[in-house]
């Protein structure tokens, strides 16, 4: 497989790339931290706020159950939000960069 030679430094300094990686990093790490913190609220809450977890919300279903279930929906929601942003913005910015470089 013949490897094409690229000037990686030049691509890395390209304003389009700089913009892409800034946006991407902010999004990825920001949301990763959010989801991780949200998740750790579950074991921490269960251990240190059992009173809260016992509060009944609908019928016999309590806050603890709803909160644990919400973890699933938050994860799915975040996954789709990421896919939406990536498909719309990150992929488009990447294509623009590649077009400009005539690769």
């Amino acid at each position: 497989m013949a490897e094409k030679k690229y000037d990686w430094g030049a691509i890395a300094r390209n304003p389009k790339f700089v913009e892409l990686h800034h946006k991407k990093s902010a999004f990825l790490f920001g949301w990763w931290i959010f989801s991780t913190l949200y998740y750790f609220l579950l074991p921490i809450g269960a251990a240190y706020a059992p009173g809260l977890f016992k509060i009944k919300i609908i019928g016999v279903i309590n806050f603890g159950y709803v909160f644990a279930l919400s973890q699933f929906f938050v994860s799915w929601g975040l996954a789709h939000y990421y896919a939406h942003v990536a498909n719309k913005d990150f992929d488009r910015m990447t294509r623009n960069l590649i077009d400009e470089l005539h690769l």
Partner: peptide
């Protein structure tokens, strides 16, 4: 048991984003 299962899914956020 239910609480235990949550982490196994949330783990995929790291896989997806990072």
């Amino acid at each position: 048991g239910f609480m235990y299962s949550v982490g196994w899914l949330v783990a995929y956020i790291t896989v997806l984003l990072i």
